[in-house]
Amino acid sequence: MAVLTSATPKEEAPGEGDGKRRTRTRGKAGRHLYAGWFTYVVLGFFTVGSLFPLVWTAIAASRDNARLAETPPPFWFGGNLGSNLQAAWTDANMGKALINTVFVAGTVTVSTVLFATLAGFAFAKLRFRGSNILLLLVIGTMMVPPQLSVVPLFMAVAELEWTNQLQAVILPMMASAFGVFFMRQYLINALPTELIEAARVDGAHSLRLVWHVVFPAARPAMAVLGMLTFVLAWNEFFWPMIALTQDNPTVQVALTGLGRGYIPDQSVIMAGSLLGTLPLLIVFAVFGKQIVGGIMQGAVKG
């Protein structure tokens, strides 16, 4: 996100290079100081704060209704995790939901990144009539409250008879104004104009230019945008809720079906909540380093 703003960096984005550089500089310059115990305490505190609600979701999911109503609240896992997860899985049509969500988020991510890179490149580097107005339009779009478009969108989807079909969810998410703006801001600095001119002189037409010059230059930002989009699409619930039903749900839609039974079971609801979050958490745990690095790299460059 910070792509838009960060001042032109005076040095390469470091990632994890702190250690090496430390040998070069002595003295008390900011980042090269070793952290004291106080730092660890504060960071530890915030880490616990970040993780606790999720851990407690898992604890609640491993208990039952009655235990959740007692004081003090449970602080450790109980024995019902398996059965609650199973109940949530069957109740909420979770298998289909996961497959659907991977498909939706995947498609949305690929197309958003592609469209945003193309349009972002055009806005960043090409001169054409109306570009300013169109760019303003894009920026304005970011400020439109999403609740606003629901009625007309639904009418359109209804007209096309797309209700309860995945494309009803995929297509509206493909046009990401933020994505276009994001890529534009990145490419303005990351893609030297001389490079484009040189390619042109070599006789490259636009498609080749995009393939051989723009995409390679944009790759880090594309990766970041891709991750942001994927997480966003995975967690989107406002519009899918309207367009889909429990018969053909995404994860977020499926979760809302958990209250459906005669008497809602809080621990099953928490189990469902956990199921819906778990895939992303696993991805974060496994690729955390890359994701963090990506977000930071995308943020610094530009």
Partner: peptide, 22 residues
């Protein structure tokens, strides 16, 4: 279950959802 079902409600959920659902 106010909370969860609010999610459901979230929006004409059905309003329309059904308006011409499958």
């Amino acid at each position: 279950t106010p909370r969860l079902s609010a999610v459901t409600a979230v929006v004409l959920s059905a309003t329309l959802l059904a308006g011409c659902a499958d």
